[in-house]
């Protein structure tokens, strides 16, 4: 997948100011940056939830920057949105079925649901429960499993670690690595830069709607500007001590 000079607006605000990058097949690409840098907007522009005003988005040779979400999904790009956006009043099983909405091979769908339960055994136990009643970590699993049900070639995850306990986060990231090993490309937006870089092949750093840095993981890990992107440039002289609570 390839983005070139993408600009997206929210009302009068220019949220993306010409974003360009590529996601090579079969790799995990991490999109890093502080709050409000434009990471989520980038994913929304790709998936068609918000339409880019300028620039091109290309997926396997098809231009998709003007496509509605249902067409983007059909082409093989699936988004696990921030906050998960499960169908809270539907059961876990129904959530998974809806993930396969565009598919018509019901036998295969059943098999994929089985596969999801093997990957996340806890979901098999909870399959008849309303998704809204699950814990945060379980909901994240449902969201990922639901997105996989469309058999995507590219899976995009928006802040999968948000609001989860560290142990669960580790589990989720392990799953993401496995999904990549199954041949699905991954575009990962994550505030937790260390965690993201620990599994990524390649990273881009966004700052106020622009890509300001890119490189492989080793390069990014040793670059102090990554931290600046999150905490800002060095402030004035230090006081003796910060107060701890």
């Amino acid at each position: 997948m390839k983005l070139d000079g993408v600009e997206t607006f929210y009302g009068a605000v220019k949220a993306l100011k010409g974003v360009s990058f590529t996601v090579p097949d079969g790799s995990i690409v991490a999109l890093l940056g502080g709050n409000g840098a434009g990471k989520t907007t980038t994913l929304r522009s790709i998936s068609g939830l918000t339409t880019a005003r300028k620039g091109t988005i290309e997926f396997n040779g098809t231009r998709i920057e003007k496509s509605p979400p249902e067409r983007v999904v059909g082409l093989g790009i699936s988004l696990v949105p921030q906050g998960r956006l499960l169908f809270a009043e539907l059961t876990v099983a129904e959530n998974l079925e809806l993930g396969a909405y565009l598919r018509h091979d019901s036998a295969e769908i059943k098999r994929d649901i089985e596969k999801a339960y093997e990957q996340f055994p806890i979901l098999r136990q909870k399959r008849a429960q309303e998704a809204g009643t699950l814990s945060g970590g379980q909901q994240q699993m449902v969201a990922i499993a639901r997105s996989l049900m469309s058999r995507p070639k590219l899976l995009m995850l928006d802040e999968p670690s948000l609001g989860l306990a560290p142990m669960i986060v580790a589990e989720i990231f392990e799953t993401i690595r496995k999904i990549r090993d199954d041949g699905v490309s991954i575009l990962l937006v994550e505030q937790n830069a260390n965690m993201a870089l620990s599994i990524a092949n390649f990273g881009y750093v966004l700052e106020s709607g622009k890509v300001v840095m890119s490189g492989n993981v080793a390069q990014l890990l040793s670059d102090p500007r990554v931290q600046q992107a999150y905490l800002g440039q060095e402030a004035g002289p230090a006081a003796p001590q910060a107060v701890r609570h």
């Binding site: 905490l231 800002g232 060095e234 402030a235 004035g236 002289p237 230090a238 006081a239 001590q241 910060a242 107060v243 701890r244 609570h245």
Partner: peptide, 14 residues
């Protein structure tokens, strides 16, 4: 939870 309070420079290094 409040995890820190201080002047900007200290916060950046916390």
């Amino acid at each position: 939870v409040v995890i820190a309070e201080g002047i900007p420079r200290d916060i950046q290094r916390d």
